Amino acid sequence: MRDLSLDTRLGLPDALQVLLQEVPREAWDADPNFHGLVSFWLERHMMFRQLMAHMRAETEGFLTGARDPQDFARGIGRYGGVFVQQLHGHHHIEDHHYFPVLREKDARIEAGFDLLDADHHALDGILNRFVEQANGAIRGVGGADARTPAGALHAGLIELDRLIGRHLEDEEDLIVPVILKYGAAGLG
């Protein structure tokens, strides 16, 4: 059996892409069920991607000397806090509200919700590591070797970006076709 853990998976297995084949990404925004919950949900995912890109740029700017150390520390603290808080809240709503309703809509993809739930648990540990790395980089600002904790944060952000990206893409490929095909009844 193929390893489907978040850190090794390259996408959803074919068995979980049945609705994506019926409702491919290219057709999403033309679907009458797109506007509303789906577009809002995808905007939240875009926000997570943008926050990740911003924190990477902040860290790279600090490492190259182009970013003021105090501004870097404030920016990582602010954007990192928003990122973690919003992602935890997003996952909580999905796990306790959206996923239970959506898993009942099509038995062919029910196992996909277990996969996404497992991702959320894996991401909890990864987010904890990110918080430690961000706090280390913030505390290191002004120190003799501030580049070492900032470098660790940068490496962690690259890995976090890869894992969050994989999770968000798989989640979109599983959930958006369900909502577009069956509607958002019970989710609002």
Rank of each mutant, 00 (worst) to 15 (best):
G165P: 07
E22W: 03
E132Q: 14
K105S: 07
R49M: 13
A107L: 06
L187D: 08
G80V: 00
G165W: 11
D124E: 12
F62L: 04
R78I: 03
V176T: 12
H90N: 06
Q21I: 00
I164V: 15
L157T: 09
F48P: 07
I93C: 04
G75K: 03
A111R: 13
W28S: 08
Q50Y: 08
D31M: 04
H120A: 09
D114G: 15
R103Q: 15
A134Y: 03
G142D: 09
E172S: 14
D124G: 03
L160H: 05
A155G: 03
Q17N: 10
R25Q: 14
F99L: 01
H91Y: 14
V18K: 08
L115R: 07
M46V: 10
G89Q: 10
D71I: 10
G188Y: 10
G81C: 00
G183Q: 01
D170W: 08
Y79H: 14
Q133D: 15
A150S: 14
A134H: 05
K105L: 13
G80L: 01
R9C: 11
D68C: 05
G11T: 06
N135C: 03
D14T: 14
F40I: 08
Q21R: 15
G81N: 00
E132K: 13
T148E: 15
Y79Q: 09
R166W: 05
A107C: 01
Q70G: 00
E159L: 12
R103E: 15
L127Y: 04
G188I: 02
D173C: 10
L63Q: 12
E172P: 04
G125A: 12
E110V: 13
L37E: 01
R162F: 01
R78V: 05
T8W: 06
H35W: 12
A152F: 12
E172F: 06
